[in-house]
């Protein structure tokens, strides 16, 4: 893995799509090129068959201070649901290797920022985008329970129990 001595740290979190938890983290300090794929020579080697031998290449652009992503994978690479062949993913971007392939959150910070984060006890952040409430589904489920006779009866009964409890406490 070549290094150019520049002061950047690239962190890639493999994210569990269903739960949103980080499954594994790779950290590259001072690297200028990171390759993801199934091939043994990749920096991040995966076994998922939807991933190509060389699927994604990340190249550090020292002048602009960001990473360039080049997709080589047969199934493509997605950022924000869009297929990309080349992109400059921002810090904390999620990249997906193929429409149903593994997801990574990419984050990169400069050495001084990383040092400051260590001192303050902060760690690399994981996106919280997966924490969403499907309001339509929620309302349907709530209605299904709350509009039933059993729930209405329970409310009445519970109110009575509460009154009794409060009376007893007096």
């Amino acid at each position: 893995m070549p290094t150019d001595g520049k002061s950047t740290i690239l962190t890639l979190h493999l994210v569990d799509s269903a739960k949103g938890h980080v499954v594994q983290t790779w950290r590259f300090e001072g690297s200028s090129r990171v390759v993801i794929g199934r091939s043994p020579e990749c920096d991040i080697r995966l076994t998922d068959k939807s991933v190509s031998r060389i699927h994604v290449e990340l190249i550090w652009d020292a002048e602009k201070g960001d990473w360039v992503l080049i997709s080589h994978g047969r199934n493509g690479t997605l950022i924000g649901g869009e297929m990309v062949t080349e992109a400059r993913p921002k810090d904390r971007t999620i990249i997906q290797l193929g429409p149903s392939g593994p997801k990574f959150q990419l984050s990169y910070v400069h050495e001084m920022l990383a040092l400051a984060a260590t001192v303050t006890g902060d760690t690399d952040t994981v996106t919280l985008e997966f924490l969403t409430i499907d309001q339509k589904r929620k309302n349907e489920e709530v209605s299904r329970i709350a509009e039933g006779d059993a729930f209405r009866a329970l409310i009445e009964r519970a109110k009575q129990l509460k009154r009794e409890r409060n009376d007893a406490a007096r």
Partner: peptide, 29 residues
């Protein structure tokens, strides 16, 4: 019933998508 006779309800959840959705239903009820 336990919830309704309580002075306080504490809901424990993990930061994952299933808990996040399910807790919203429980909370609304």
């Amino acid at each position: 019933l336990s919830i309704i006779i309580s002075d306080m309800l504490i809901l424990v959840l993990r930061p994952d998508s299933q808990d996040f959705q399910g807790t919203s239903v429980t909370l609304e009820l």
